[in-house]
Simulated scan of single mutants.
Amino acid sequence: MSTPDEESALLGLAPVAPDRTVAYGPHPDQIVDLYAARAGAEPDAGAWPGAAHGPLVVLLHGGFWRAAYDRRHLSPLAAALAGHGLPVALAEYRRVGAGGGAPRTFDDVTAAIRAATQATRAAAGGTDAERRAGAGGTAAAADGTAAGRGTVLVGHSAGGHLALLAAARPGTPVTRVIAVSPVADLARAHELGLSDDAVGALCGGGPGLADRIAAADPLRHPPPRDLPVTLLHGTADPDVPPEISRRYAAAHPAGTTLRELPAVGHYAAVTPGTPSFRTLLGELLDGRGADGA
């Protein structure tokens, strides 16, 4: 599948409504869509063993941080993962052109992760210890778990940047990060002028831009301690060149795994039904790709 076809295949899918939506702030974009795990559903031919015991997946969409692109194009992915028994939270956040940009966008992501984790624990009734203590899910923000299964942060493109940056922040309640075609080296992306200098728009122009980019650049932050990071990047990605992920992996070799997807573009891994989606699913369920590699 060529890369233009990849984009059409994803964006041509009909949005899938969530089971419910929770707000984490007063702005219309400060919301999280929740998709319940379909653990009791009849498994399809591609169902994975043990899916019902999978982690909470918090999804962060891309679109180069711009308001023109919202979470709806990842709703088919959210629904597909839920169909494999994974509880999913699809987060929205303020974006450039609609009240977002640094640092508001970054603060929203942190708040969305906490809201998703707490909502999932509350729906599951919390742990036995929490119920006995009457904690009401407070421990979710402290230990990064959701109903005892852990919380995996999955970000695509600019959402991959946000996932890596959020994970580098102390106290973010996640147990693993999977970044798909991420803008993982913000300074290099700015040098390349990706998407009409989307990085400059995110961080604001004028004096001090280099410092603001550095502050928002996951490559220049210490890697998340004891937090596994997996990068999935297509070798034929025209939107975010694979060198971006290679540079992050080279800068943070400890705890970072880079999986390059041969002849894959920017969208296939987040499009249900593709071989690259199976790779992502395998990473989520058991740390392996669909081929067991």
Score class of each variant (00 low, 15 high):
Ser2Lys: 02
Ser8Phe: 14
Gly12Ala: 12
Ala14Asn: 07
Pro15Gly: 13
Val16Lys: 07
Pro18Ala: 11
Asp19Glu: 15
Asp19Phe: 00
Arg20Phe: 02
His27Cys: 09
Pro28Phe: 03
Ala36Phe: 05
Ala37Gln: 14
Arg38Ser: 01
Gly40Asn: 12
Ala41Asp: 15
Ala41Thr: 07
Pro43Gly: 01
Pro43Ser: 00
Ala45Gln: 12
Ala45Asp: 15
Gly46Asn: 13
Pro49Cys: 00
Ala52Asn: 12
His53Met: 08
His53Trp: 10
Pro55Ser: 10
Trp65Ala: 07
Arg66Gln: 14
Ser75Ala: 08
Leu77Ser: 10
Ala78Phe: 03
Ala79Met: 05
His84Thr: 12
Gly85Glu: 09
Leu86Tyr: 04
Glu92His: 07
Arg104Ile: 06
Arg104Asn: 07
Val109Gln: 05
Ala111Ser: 14
Ala112Tyr: 00
Arg114Phe: 00
Ala115Cys: 14
Ala122Cys: 06
Thr127Pro: 03
Asp128Ile: 03
Glu130Ala: 10
Gly137Trp: 00
Asp143Trp: 01
Thr145Ser: 15
Thr145Cys: 12
Ala147Glu: 00
Gly148Tyr: 11
Leu153Pro: 04
Leu153Ala: 08
Ser157Cys: 11
Leu162Phe: 13
Leu165Ile: 06
Ala167Val: 02
Ala168Ser: 15
Gly171Ser: 08
Val174His: 01
Val177His: 12
Val177Gln: 15
Val177Asn: 13
Ala179Gly: 12
Ala184Ser: 14
Ala187Val: 13
Ala189Glu: 09
His190Met: 10
Glu191Asn: 02
Gly193Ala: 13
Gly193Arg: 07
Asp196Ala: 11
Asp197His: 15
Ala201Ile: 00
Ala214Arg: 15
Ala215Glu: 13
Ala216Asp: 12
Asp217Gln: 04
Asp217Cys: 03
Leu219Met: 10
His221Gln: 15
Thr230Glu: 03
Thr230Ile: 07
Thr235Leu: 00
Ala236Asp: 12
Pro238Glu: 13
Asp239Phe: 04
Ile244Asn: 06
Ser245Gln: 08
Arg247Gln: 10
Ala250Lys: 04
Ala251Gly: 09
Pro253Glu: 08
Thr257Ile: 07
Arg259Cys: 11
Leu261Gln: 10
Leu261Ile: 09
Ala263Phe: 12
Val264Leu: 06
His266Ala: 01
Tyr267Cys: 06
Val270Arg: 01
Val270Thr: 07
Thr271Glu: 05
Pro272Asp: 08
Arg278Gly: 15
Leu280Val: 05
Ala293Asn: 09
